[in-house]
Design a protein around this nucleic acid. Structure first.
Length: 903
RNA sequence: GGGCGAUUGGCGCAGCGGUAGCGCAGAUGCUUUACACGCAUAAGGUCAGCGGUUCAAAUCCGUUAUCGCCCACCA
């Protein structure tokens, strides 16, 4: 079917194209072949298989590169649907589009997985060594790295699959190296000793933002530290600590400068138990006099705040732990113990010495490694840092002045706050899988440099050099994503793709990597390209479980998008998710929406089936708005298209989806197709015009739906005799709201509104008295002359849809004896029921109707008798209110009249 | 501790200054020749509490309560 690229419109010899359509749309049977069809024809490339208009502005999106360890989760499903919707729309508008695809090597995540896999096989990473381990990682990537790309294809995403990138590709890696070398030579990268969050299990530094806090009920140990000289008869002070084992590294005790009781201790010394070290008592503003005892033990090497105090007061920094958090040599029996053993031993020894004052329970949070969940150790080590102060200025400016727009806009401030609180960025990681830091050192003469090419011997003294063994933080490499994927490595900012297509248009991502990734891309892009990397940042809602909590394996509230696609089709999942992308920051996952979207797909399918079944004698041609019904649906289509354009501009996905749904289902299917049924039975020009209108409206609707529901729209479009020479809806022109505006017709909309009032009144009465649709009834309509004229023009529609025997319309119509009366906004409908009418029930119904109108009238009268309102409200509001009041008055009078007649 | 968001019919959400809307569930009736993943009809809400601004507040401001997210983190 899709192989028939010719798609000859109107070749009348063909058998009925609806013949091979089952009653229910079956996504599984068509999705993959349609995807192949698109792929084979090159529609995913920037030239869209030759259908892109090179004159138009290019449109580019870079995908947030999924980790090679990743499986498709709900976050991807949502985010990739959003991006595909944007890019497909732009492609249909004729813009040269490209959605750049790739994956991230994900240093620590991948290393952990491979490590675990090897461990399961009984292989130790340390034993096989760095080279062999990296080989294992590449093997792993080869085996699993493509999984997620396959899954993205399954969603129908129109990425450029022929130019896939990977953050460890040779070209990309050179780019990363280039940036490091440049920043090093510019002084933007420096080496320093710092307290970092150290994972003793992974033996690497963990960035602040990679650490996870876990609440824990621990203890507060109150330890007595003897004073060297008693003060006022007091021979010890008491410190409170959650980590008694670190006392081995204490080099001071701090008190608050605002604590008058502690003044006398400042300058005194205590003798540190167990290690017999004399350390000073000093005052520092960091200390909170109200917490614990007001005395704080200070361990500069094992606490970031203590480190700060140590710097301010020139304290010695004593490191008591090795890289696996075991006590180092020189601490007697404690040496070699891990931190938990040391804690136990030290507390016991304090107790034995009578120096354990007391213990309290204490709730606090501890930092853990986000990968292995080992408690992190604040540890002093040598690391590489990026000095961010200069870089962040530009990154803040381009958002402040609106060059980069956030959607929803409130995220702008979050971004700016993140930047303003940014501290220098620790970029070295003690891992093997990643971009190895290109620093070379000569141990003989002390030469060192960052180099683009590997260095074997020292350029200074000729001795062998060694390379730094650390790798870079994964975010250091992902910050280059928008430009290193477009030729920056070899040609810099002058690269052809960058010159033609930079900046990109949209970056869509989750809020939790706004700083980690988004801000850093802006920083590096402003530095490397001197341009913003993207114009719009979409921060999509986070998909929460049905319980409103983040999805996680431990909570068991997760949902698998692969299963959802199986159950609802890729289109059903996509549309169901988009319906939930409102401006909210969280999205409580609602599977009902996907079910509804699957049903919607079936509805579209069956509407198409109906139209295709009724194309006997069809000849292609432009739409022919002969009747008010025709004019009405075309007018509605024109208005819908214009509205969708506006909503797309604002990245309002739920609204676009909702509007499409309502138009297609509640207007096209519920009314226009129903209207058309009678006409399709006639022969001649009316029938042909109706067919053309149906084909036209369906064609245009499918195009409007295509970015959100790519598969079903393509499948149907291939069967439909559309007036379009493009072989695929994917490259068919986007409906032009300006062109369609010629169909806007408010008179026709009004006429159909009246028809609907009459038909609905009849149905309502039938339902109330349980009169089947097959029984013909007589109907009298009382309405204004003009309204009657409008309905009269569509008399046959009222007849067919109402199954009416006699229809009388008259401005002065009298209710027939024994008829039921319906009062609508604009008219009365009398329906004769041959003695079936329950007048008591009729009265109750009309009274309810009246009471509602009375309430409305009271409200409006109150408003209109309010002088403040008349004086201060906008004139058009007053005018509108007056009209409403008149309408209510009119309806009320008519209802009252009907009630009077019942008496 | 700081910031942000949510609180609207049973459930999930729109609306964000001028008389409350949608989907699902539930009710009733329909094998109406596109669709029961359907059609039709009817029912259901003092928009979390309190205070304020305004001629007018679900909508703006303040406050309280509950829930959630993000950031920082106390020895």
């Amino acid at each position: 079917m899709t192989d028939n690229i010719e798609n000859e419109a109107g070749s009348s010899e063909q058998q009925n194209p609806a013949a091979d359509m089952p009653k229910n749309y079956d996504p599984a049977s068509i999705e993959s072949s349609l995807f192949d069809f698109w792929y084979r024809n090159g529609y995913f490339h920037r030239d869209a298989g030759g259908y892109a208009n090179p004159e138009k502005e290019p449109y580019t999106i870079v995908i947030p590169p999924p980790n090679i360890t990743g499986m498709l989760h709900m976050g991807h499903a949502l985010n990739d649907t959003i991006q595909d919707t944007c890019i497909r729309r732009a492609r249909m508008q004729g813009r040269p589009t490209r959605w750049i695809l790739g994956t991230d090597h994900a240093g620590i995540a991948t290393q952990t997985k491979v490590d675990k896999k090897l461990a399961d096989e009984g292989i130790s990473r340390l034993k096989i060594g760095r080279e062999a381990f990296i080989d294992e990682c590449w093997k792993w990537r080869k085996e699993y790295g493509g999984t997620i790309v396959t899954q993205i294809k399954g969603m129908g995403c129109s990425c450029d699959y022929d130019d896939e990138h990977f953050t460890l590709d040779p070209d990309y890696a050179q780019g990363v190296r280039r940036l490091f070398v440049e920043w090093y030579h510019k002084g933007l990268i420096y080496r320093g000793k710092r307290i970092v969050n150290w994972c003793p299990h992974c033996t690497t530094a963990i960035a602040d933002d990679e650490a996870e806090y876990v609440d824990e009920v621990g203890h507060l140990w109150y330890l007595r530290y003897p004073l060297v000289e008693p003060i006022d008869g007091q021979d010890y002070i008491v410190v409170a600590t959650t980590r008694p084992e670190t006392m081995l590294g204490d080099t001071g005790v701090a008190v608050s400068p605002k604590d008058p009781d502690k003044k006398k201790f400042v300058g005194a010394k205590v003798r540190l138990p167990l290690v017999d070290r004399e350390i000073p008592i000093f005052s520092d503003f960091y200390v909170d006099a109200g917490f614990g005892t007001g005395f704080v033990k200070v361990t500069p090497s094992h606490d970031p705040n203590d480190w700060g105090m140590g710097e301010r007061h020139g304290l010695e920094k004593i490191n008591i732990f090795d890289e696996t958090a075991h006590v180092v040599e020189g601490y007697g029996k404690y040496s070699g113990m891990d931190r938990d053993e040391a804690r136990k031993a030290i507390v016991e020894d304090f107790d034995a010495l009578g120096l354990l004052d007391h213990i309290e329970e204490h709730e606090h949070s501890v930092m853990t490694c986000y990968r292995c969940h080992t408690k992190l150790e604040p540890w002093e080590s040598e690391q590489w840092f990026v000095a961010v102060d200069k870089l962040k200025e530009d990154a803040a400016r381009v958002v402040e002045d609106g060059e980069i727009q956030f959607h929803p806009a409130r995220w702008k401030q979050v971004y700016l706050d993140w930047l303003s609180n940014l501290k220098d960025w620790c970029i070295s990681r003690q891992l093997w899988w990643g971009h190895r830091i290109p620093m070379f050192y000569c141990d003989s003469c002390g030469w060192e440099d960052a180099c683009m090419d590997d260095v074997e011997v020292c350029p200074n003294c000729g001795k062998p050099v060694r390379r730094d063994t650390d790798v870079l933080d994964t975010w250091f490499s992902s910050q280059l994503w928008p430009f290193a994927t477009q030729g920056w490595t070899t040609d810099g900012a002058e690269a052809a793709e960058i010159k033609a297509n930079y900046p990109t248009q949209v970056l869509s991502t989750a809020r939790d990597i706004m700083g980690l990734w988004v801000a850093r891309m802006v920083m590096s892009s402003m530095y490397c390209i001197k341009q913003i990397p993207f114009e719009n940042v979409i921060i999509h809602p986070t998909v929460m479980g049905a319980d409103g909590k983040p999805m996680s394996k431990s909570r068991g509230n997760g949902v698998d998008p692969l299963k959802l696609m199986k159950d609802y089709g890729a289109d059903g999942m996509r549309f169901g998710l988009l319906l939930q992308v409102t401006g909210a920051q969280d999205l409580k996952f609602n599977e009902d929406r996907l079910e509804g979207s699957r049903n919607f797909a079936t509805k579209i399918w069956n509407a198409a089936r109906f139209i295709l079944m009724n194309l006997d004698g069809y000849e292609p041609g432009d739409p022919q708005p002969l009747t008010d019904a025709d004019k009405w649906i075309l007018s509605r289509l024109a208005k819908l298209t214009a509205r969708l354009d506006e909503e797309a501009e604002d990245f309002e996905f739920a609204k676009q989806a909702q509007d499409l749904y309502e138009f297609f289902w509640n207007e096209l299917c519920d009314w226009y197709i129903e209207f058309s049924k009678g006409r399709l039975r006639e022969e001649g020009p009316t029938k042909l015009a109706t067919q053309r209108n149906l084909v036209f409206v369906l064609d245009q609707s499918l195009r409007l739906l295509h970015p959100m529901m790519p598969f079903i729209t393509e499948e149907i479009w291939q069967k439909l005799p559309v007036q379009c020479d493009r072989p695929s809806i994917m490259v068919a022109p986007w409906p032009d709201s300006k062109e369609l505006a010629k169909f806007i017709d408010d008179d026709a909309e009004r006429a159909i509104e009246l028809v609907r009032q009459v038909v609905t009144s009849i149905r309502s009465t039938r339902a109330r008295y349980q009169i089947g649709n097959k029984k013909q009834i007589d109907v009298v309509v009382k309405a204004s002359k003009e309204d009657i004229a409008a309905i009269e023009a569509e008399r046959d529609l009222v007849f067919t849809m109402g199954n009416i025997g006699n229809l009388t319309m008259d401005p002065d119509a009298q209710k027939p004896k024994g008829a039921s009366a319906i009062v609508t906004d604009d008219l009365e409908v009398y329906i004769g029921l041959e003695g079936l009418v329950d007048f008591e029930a009729e009265r109750k119904r009309l009274e309810k109707n009246r009471d509602k109108l009375l309430k409305d009238k009271q409200k409006l009268d109150k408003k209109l008798s309010n002088e403040g309102f008349l004086a201060k409200a906008a004139p058009e509001v007053v005018e509108k209110t007056r009209n409403e009041a008149a309408d209510v008055e009119d309806s009320l009078a008519r209802v009252e009249a009907q009630l009077a007649e019942l008496d």
